[in-house]
Amino acid sequence: MNIFRLAGDMTHLASVLVLLLKIHTIKSCAGVSLKTQELYALVFATRYLDIVTDFISVYNTVMKLIFLGSSFSIVWYIRHHRVVRRSYDKDQDTFRHYLLMIPCMLLALFVHEKFTFKEVMWTFSLYLEAVAILPQLVLLQRTRNIDNLTGQYVFLLGAYRGLYIFNWIYRYFTEPHFVHWITWIAGVVQTLLYADFFYYYFESWKNNVRLQLPA
């Protein structure tokens, strides 16, 4: 464990807590893409298959349970909670996210480190996470006024993988033969997808104006 990875995990934890706080407290999911939440639930479900077979550390297992539990409960809230689901804007959240799953699964079947079920599913989760934010970013462009919590959620979610990139650089230089191109490329692509959001998020913070993404 290094400071970059810990900071990344804490930022990721903060993003899911901000979203859970928003949905649980103000009972609203306005501006939140259910599609992105469903993709993230699938990302964690396919990435943490080893939660029962490979014990790495208490920290690792606890965090996996938190991410699995929070992502599935957020999906449940938006789909089934009698108050929250009324604030879900299904007419705006129209990204066909299953069109993201298919290429990711195909790519995982061809490009992976080992051709085993767990490894292919793990690789699929990496590719899927890289693009999972797209429905949310599309929804933000359609949502005229983005509330602070949703903006903070997307910012923290994008920042966590950016911190992981520093973690990979650190591990590359400190651990012999720590080389994982698939993880690195997926992580860089994922972070780059947030680039324009980060720009507008920083601009709105600097000029102290409401965050708005150009359509």
Partner: peptide
């Protein structure tokens, strides 16, 4: 134990 020598990240 080759599997989790690099799956130790979240």
């Amino acid at each position: 134990r080759d599997y989790d020598d690099y799956h130790d990240e979240l």
